[in-house]
Design a protein around this nucleic acid. Structure first.
Length: 217
DNA sequence: AAAACGGGGGC
DNA sequence: GCCCCAGTTTT
C-alpha cells in the first residue's frame, strides 16, 4: 500500500491552491464561490486554457450579474464576450439555457445535487463535481484528463475510464483531501507530470511513483 | 468503449 | 496547416 496521505500532502505543498479558472474563492463565507458563477465559468473552461476562461468569465459577469440577466442576454453578445474560450456558439447557447433553467425552475438557486446538475446542457461529471466542490464545498472529485492520467501513472488507481477513476480515488484518498485532487493534479501535470516526457528526476513524489520505479529499474 | 463534435490561439 | 486545450454528447 502506498502512503497516500503523505504523497498528496507533498503535492499540495509543492503545488499550492490553484484557483479554479472561474474566479476567486474569497467571496463566500464557506470558502466556496457563488455556485452560479462556478457553474457558468466551469462550462466555459471546457477544452480551453484557464487563462482564457478567467478573461471570458470576468467579461461575462461584469455585464450579466445573475441568472435572470444572463437568460435574457442576446446570444450574439454572449458569443462575442466569451470568444476567447472557443466553441462560442455551443457554449453561449448552453450558458443561456442553463441560466434560464436556474432562474425559472430553481428560483435562482443552483441545485447542489449531482443528478440535477447533470441534466443541464454541457454539464457532465467533471463540471458537475466542480460545482459541488468549488461552489458548495462538498466532498467530490472532479476527474479531468489530467487527474485520470496522473492517477493511473503513479499507481494511485488502475482504471480505464474517468468515471472509474473517480470511484477508485474516492476509495483510496482520505476524504479531507478530495478537494485538492483536481487543482493540485492539474498544476502538477503542467509543471512535472506532463503527458509525454514527465520530469521524473525533479518530481517531489517520484519515490512513491510506480512509473518512475519501473523506469529506473 | 469509441468516435464525433466544437473553435481560438500558438507556432 | 497542424496541434494543443480544466469535456460532453452521440454512436
Amino acid at each position: 500500500m502506498k502512503p497516500v496521505r503523505e504523497m498528496l500532502i507533498t503535492l499540495v505543498e509543492h503545488f499550492p491552491i490553484g484557483a479554479f479558472p472561474g474566479g476567486t474563492n474569497d467571496d463566500q463565507p464557506d470558502g466556496g464561490s457563488d455556485p452560479f458563477r462556478v457553474l457558468i465559468s466551469t462550462v466555459l473552461s471546457q477544452r480551453t486554457k484557464d487563462e482564457n476562461t478567467y478573461i471570458a468569465s470576468q467579461r461575462l459577469f461584469s455585464k450579466y450579474k445573475n441568472p435572470a440577466e444572463l437568460a435574457a442576454a442576446p446570444i450574439d453578445d454572449l458569443m462575442e464576450l466569451i470568444r476567447p474560450v472557443g466553441f462560442p456558439k455551443a457554449k453561449s447557447k448552453a450558458i443561456k439555457e442553463i441560466a434560464r433553467i436556474i432562474h425559472q425552475d430553481y428560483n435562482d438557486r443552483v441545485p447542489n445535487e449531482i443528478d440535477k446538475l447533470l441534466a443541464l446542457p454541457l454539464v457532465g461529471r467533471k463540471t458537475a463535481n466542480c460545482v459541488l466542490v468549488y461552489g458548495f464545498g462538498q466532498d467530490a472529485i472532479p476527474v479531468d484528463v489530467h487527474v485520470h492520467r496522473i492517477s493511473n501513472r503513479i499507481g494511485l488507481v488502475s482504471t480505464k475510464t474517468p468515471e472509474e477513476t473517480e470511484i477508485e480515488l474516492k476509495r483510496v484518498v482520505p476524504k479531507d483531501l478530495w478537494k485538492f485532487i483536481n487543482t493540485v493534479f492539474i498544476a502538477f501535470g503542467k509543471r512535472i507530470c506532463t503527458p509525454r516526457n514527465p520530469k521524473c528526476l525533479i518530481c517531489p513524489i517520484n519515490r512513491y511513483c510506480d512509473y518512475f520505479t519501473k523506469k529506473i529499474r
